[in-house]
Design a protein around this nucleic acid. Structure first.
Lengths: 245, 245
DNA sequence: TGTACATCAGTGAACGCGCGTTCACTGATGTAC
DNA sequence: TGTACATCAGTGAACGCGCGTTCACTGATGTAC
């Protein structure tokens, strides 16, 4: 039994409910595999039905449409990535903010390299014609960035983040308003300049991962990709405000 | 007559050759529009033929296959972006390295915002099942990064780039070998640590643009997107080695 | 405990659609003598 | 300058394929009395 099926079974009474949950989990798993080999745009309910050994109309018992399957896969992928990041961050001690930051970055990269198609679904070009339904993907989709924000805010409160030099801390008023809203919405203590840098660190982390996963570096230029990424993480840590150490 | 058709006509003698070049340019233009509205994975020769007002088999006179049309569109988009970047950089005086750097970044973002689908084709998830043929996309595909590298190397030679602090300049040997190969291949003067930072600046620039274009920020969080991007560019300039100014 | 009924999973056929690509063909445009 | 021939653009039909989704249906599994 797969982990997904085990999870899906939790708290379900009747055999029918359990069988149903297991079938939904199978559909998600097969969709995942299909995604990995053929890409999101080519994801097809009929192909999933074939792999499931069932006639194509039967999957409509479990999934209302192709778009809903995509939503399930999106949520599944976000949670898988979120779990990987949480596990890596949680393995570091609570006060080791810099260690947690590095663990987060490495976990994102590792997951992306291991799951390039699912990473592409989450962070690549949007799937044409698909719009995520309101309220289904927001929570799982923000897990990583909230974890990152949490680490930086905790580090700041603990006095371990150095604010950027004054001349680099100037933020235009319209942007300051956005950043204030972020701070208020998430209950943060970090000042504007560090939030702004944090956003850059966030986008840069995913930019570096995307370039590697999407093949922008070309096949030969960088052989020491782990080293390159770790160097990037090191520099980004400095950008985020961590003092050298 | 479109610009593309004008360019395609250059140096062509006979009316037939000119008509042919104009038709190929029309096909590329229609493919571009199709791309913008339906995405790369949905790009279809039949749809292009319909828009061209011609039976589907007729386009095979001009384009050997769907994959070749994709290649044409890839090259077309790379060159369009490259032209936009060259124009923006060229508008700054030769010695204004920092200005050139900012112009490059802003031009990339502006082009991407104006052409999200083509940007996605170049920098999003790879098109499933498509592999660029060797030798067709490399040159146009490297225009922007070569421009960036040129600006940074020129600035370094002019003494306007400060190398990072010694403790941030440590590069592991395997990565140093990659960076040495880059330096030798491109005839650069910049030291390892600045090349490494330059790679991060490059990926971060596209990471920031991709987050904005692919909708990762969410619809509401940042209203002052130009300000945010300019702030990022400012910080990235510092990372690249430009002194504050 | 047994029976009548409701619920549900899965079938198979069908609808209407779009796709890439091939092929034999018609007619118009260009070229060589 | 006129004619015979070659080249090329575009047609229309066809091949075989896959897709999402609907619908009436059969049988098996569960539930209420």
């Amino acid at each position: 039994m797969t982990d997904a099926a085990t999870n899906a079974d939790a708290g379900l009474r009747t055999p029918r409910e359990r069988a149903r949950a297991r079938t939904v989990a199978d559909i998600v798993r097969l969709g995942r595999e299909h995604l990995a080999t053929h890409g999101a745009a080519a994801l097809s309910l009929r192909a999933v039905a074939r792999d499931l050994g069932v006639v194509s109309s039967a999957v409509y018992r479990y999934v209302a449409s192709r778009d809903e399957l995509l939503t399930l896969l999106l949520v599944d992928a976000y949670n898988d990535l979120g779990d990987a990041v949480d596990a890596a961050v949680g393995a570091k001690s609570e006060g080791d903010f810099s260690g947690r930051f590095h663990a987060l970055g490495l976990a994102v990269r590792e997951w992306a390299v291991r799951e390039p198609a699912r990473y592409g679904l989450l962070f690549g070009s949007p799937v044409p014609g698909y719009r995520a339904p309101a309220g289904r993907t927001e929570a799982p989709g923000t897990r990583v960035v909230y974890s990152l924000v949490g680490i930086l805010d905790d580090a700041y409160r603990a006095g371990e983040l150095a604010p950027p030099p004054a001349d680099a801390a100037v933020v235009p008023p319209a942007l300051a308003a956005d950043l204030d809203a972020v701070r208020a919405g998430l209950g943060l203590a970090v000042p504007d300049s560090l939030i702004a840098n944090g956003v850059l660190v966030w986008t840069s982390l995913f930019g570096a991962v995307s370039f590697e996963v999407f093949g922008q570096y070309g096949p030969d230029t960088f052989k020491a990709r782990e080293d390159l990424f770790e160097h990037h993480l090191h520099v980004l840590a400095g950008l985020a405000g961590f003092r050298r150490g």
